[in-house]
Design a protein around this nucleic acid. Sequence first.
DNA 1: TTCACATTTCAATAATTTCCGAACGTTCGC
DNA 2: GCGAACGTTCGGAAATTATTGAAATGTGAA
Lengths: 181, 181
Amino acid sequence: MPETVSNALVTARREFVDLWGQMANHWGINRTMAQIHALLMISPEPLTAEQIMEDLQISRGNVSMNLRDLINWGIVRRTSIPGDRRDFFTTEADVWSMFQIILRERKKRELDPLLTRLDECLVHVGKKSETADEKASHEVFVKRVTELRDFFNTFHRLASTLLDSQPGSLAKAVKMIDKIM
Amino acid sequence: MPETVSNALVTARREFVDLWGQMANHWGINRTMAQIHALLMISPEPLTAEQIMEDLQISRGNVSMNLRDLINWGIVRRTSIPGDRRDFFTTEADVWSMFQIILRERKKRELDPLLTRLDECLVHVGKKSETADEKASHEVFVKRVTELRDFFNTFHRLASTLLDSQPGSLAKAVKMIDKIM
DNA sequence: TTCACATTTCAATAATTTCCGAACGTTCGC
DNA sequence: GCGAACGTTCGGAAATTATTGAAATGTGAA
């Protein structure tokens, strides 16, 4: 990153990195990880760990571990520059691709296990019950869990669809849905 | 909640409460809050604070504060039973309504501010830059932030649409998106 | 191979979040 | 009014999560 950037740009960059970090909190994501990601997104060229360290004022180890996580998520790549021994890092430039990568990962880590475990709840609860009280409890349980399962199943299908669709599909779909309703 | 529920039902209930609590972590939500919510979802009748306390083995204060948050979110209601001085609590029974309530709240708390602040980033960065390096940085910044803004704007519209749509709309919408692609 | 530097790992520490429980306020029945 | 039951709040403890810093490991050039 050039060191000659203007004040306005520096400020706006900080604002963005900070914003992305704050958003991460809401989404259950480590703040520093999100800040590194933000930094990479707005950098014209790949960055070294040292540059990230200095810009965010965090330790070497912290940068290293969070970069590893980002790479595991699939949204950051390690690149190299000829004649330079250091590792450089970039993030996926295209917003839609980035969204798909994150969606794929969260689906795999959260949605799929959620559906599996909801089904397990239904299996484990069994079929019959004796007393009237218990029957009511049983019925409500099965009803609610089944509804949740169906609901998240819709999301599952939505995610699958979005995962192999073109950029812009979402926007188109939203417009169409608007018309229908 | 009846105390005569069978072992299988008790186990399945615990499984569900636990599952919901774990999911909450991924979504940046307090685990206990989610467990209380789960408990209310699978209860045929409203519960008292004391029942929640005992079931989840947590303190009175913890229950009280988390119920307050749940009520602020709008997904839990305080009800009363004639002849009983205690407060009873229920959650919205319908999954789609629950989804809409949460969506509305998250839109207000996260998406709207996000869009505002992304726009602010674009305003603050200004228009011109001098050096070649800076020009590149500037351009990339504006490009990326604009793309993100547009992307989240699509979500904003989607959310608005879903907020005043009928249950089942999402499922229909998913089918439509499938067709488009 | 050795050197110099780059990178990763991890135990210790710091920061943050969550939670308990005591103290307080309120309401109701007596 | 008084006491009992109920609900809320909040300071600090406990648990969890994030971060550092330094040692260990890896890597490429000569």
